[in-house]
């Protein structure tokens, strides 16, 4: 039993590595490489986001704040200090995001439910406005273009593998967290916060911890994105970015660790395919997610697992 689950776990990771590892071999056009990089980064963004929502029950409509921060630290450092600051900028961005997440988080955890969601939105919009208006420093609405990674990392294939490594490692770390005692307490906070207090554990303290963890990994996703698009833009902070990651998560399934993973792939592919035929892709996405919410609230992964479960049960009974 145990070796079997270990085998399954290993083969899952191996499959992911192989599929994404082979992308540069088969998809040679810049466009396809770009698409694959986007998918990887959004997978990280969505998975980190769902540590808050699916796991702990905190729906943030403002994780774009950290996505943007992670990107802007890299972009602005390269702009003002040169290409060599690309990776240091990323690291500084993570530390800064952790500090900002701590400060904002201390305020956020004072409110719950819809108010939490609104407050996250307000903070993200505030940061968006600051970046938008501070034209002299941030380039405002124009953003910054032409941001290049140093040395060999400016090669798209090298950078792709760099992203792949970081994203897979991050997802692995997040999964360990989700299945650790700490992750268990977070699930408990989601289901019954009052009882958690009677386990002798502080609800808000744990919410704050996961808020910081989530935000740091979201910032990492933002930092990585700079090397793909070679630009930063205020749109990274805007609330529809936060909205998009929510759509991905619900598409894949909020109560499954790999839900956002699958959801991110699905949503970006849909966007890409639909986008080729019509400019009205948000109509299509909106309708798809609407149907998911109404009819298949468990998401792609959740509904698939349920089907599989039923099938296995049937087989067992039949045999």
């Amino acid at each position: 039993m145990k070796t079997e689950s270990r085998f399954r776990e290993t083969s899952l990771w191996a499959t992911i590595m192989i599929i994404f590892g082979l992308v540069p071999v088969f998809m040679t056009s810049t466009y396809q490489m770009n698409l694959a990089s986007h998918i990887l980064i959004w997978i990280l963004f969505a998975t980190a986001f769902n540590m808050l929502w699916g796991l702990t029950g905190m729906l943030s409509f403002g994780q774009a704040l950290y996505y943007g921060l992670g990107a802007y630290f890299v972009g602005l450092m390269v702009k003002y200090l040169g290409s060599a600051w690309f990776f240091p900028g990323m690291a500084i961005g993570l530390v800064a995001s952790a500090i900002i997440a701590l400060l904002i988080g201390l305020l956020l955890i004072r409110v719950g439910g819809v108010y939490f969601t609104m407050l996250t939105l307000a903070f993200a919009q505030l940061m968006y406005q600051i970046m938008f208006k501070w034209y002299n420093f941030t380039g405002g609405d124009d953003g910054v273009v032409g941001i290049m990674q140093p040395g060999i990392f400016s090669n798209p294939i090298v950078y792709y593998y760099f992203i792949l490594g970081i994203v897979i490692a991050s997802i692995w770390i997040l999964k360990r967290i989700a299945y650790s005692p700490f992750g268990m307490v977070l699930r408990c906070v989601n289901q019954n916060p009052d009882r958690v207090r009677f386990l002798g554990r502080r609800v808000r303290r744990n919410q704050l911890r996961i808020y910081i963890v989530s935000s740091v990994f979201v910032a990492l996703a933002g930092g990585l994105m700079v090397g793909v698009d070679n630009s930063i833009h205020t749109d990274m902070f805007v609330w529809t970015t936060s909205g998009e990651v929510i759509l991905m998560t619900v598409l894949g399934g909020i109560n499954q660790f790999f839900g956002p993973f699958v959801g991110a792939i699905a949503l970006i592919l849909i966007e890409d395919i639909v986008g080729a035929y019509t400019e009205y892709w948000s109509l299509i996405i909106g309708t798809i997610v609407l149907i998911m919410v109404l009819l298949f609230p468990k998401g792609l992964v959740g509904e698939f697992l349920q089907l599989k479960h039923r099938f296995l049960k049937l087989k067992k009974h039949g045999g």
Partner: peptide, 14 residues
């Protein structure tokens, strides 16, 4: 786990 003060462990699986 809470009594054993191990709920902060975020790395070892449950």
């Amino acid at each position: 786990l809470s009594r054993m003060n191990k709920t902060k462990k975020f790395w070892r699986p449950m």
